[in-house]
């Protein structure tokens, strides 16, 4: 399976462009990872949980982003990057859902439900991963 749009800071593929426009018009927190594994966008709704605007954050590798969030199971057990919903969607190329705990830039620990799915183009080429999440308060 081909992957397209790899590499940060370059022109984005149409599925990513359309996903960003969807995210930008939603109140559901959402972030996007491109086919090269770079976090390329999160929306205003996600800023509240991440604790920093995307304009301040800029593009970074999804690995760095995951480390910053200090992802764990609800009982505190660390979660490997490839086992997070975004990691499963990226590496295994299938949808995934999980309850996690994460720490934002504001230092607040939150319990969030996370759903991620890969973006495949019309000829099954991989464009990236869409991840939506919301705080459960649990």
């Amino acid at each position: 399976m081909r992957a397209v749009g790899e590499g940060a800071g370059g022109p984005k593929s149409l599925p990513l462009i359309l996903a960003r426009e969807l995210a930008a018009n939603l109140a559901t927190p959402m972030f996007l990872i491109d086919a090269g594994g770079t976090l390329v966008y999160y929306n205003d709704a996600a800023e509240g949980l991440i604790g920093r605007s995307f304009g301040e954050q800029g593009e970074i590798s999804a690995g760095q982003f995951g480390e910053m969030l200090q992802l764990t199971e609800p009982d505190g057990t660390p979660v490997r990057r490839r086992d997070t919903p975004a990691g499963v969607a990226f590496f295994q190329r299938c949808p995934s859902h999980r309850v996690l705990q994460a720490t934002g830039y504001d230092g607040v620990r939150r319990t969030v439900e996370v759903t991620a799915y890969p973006l495949f183009g019309t000829t099954d080429e991989m464009h990236g991963v869409v991840t939506v999440f919301w705080e459960t308060g649990g």
């Binding site: 800071g9 370059g10 022109p11 984005k12 149409l14 462009i17 960003r20 426009e21 930008a24 018009n25």
Partner: peptide, 18 residues
Amino acid sequence: SLGVTLANHPADWTSGYE
């Protein structure tokens, strides 16, 4: 321009730009 204000939208995120 769908969903964006084209004049100040990032070029890399603009359909057809590349």
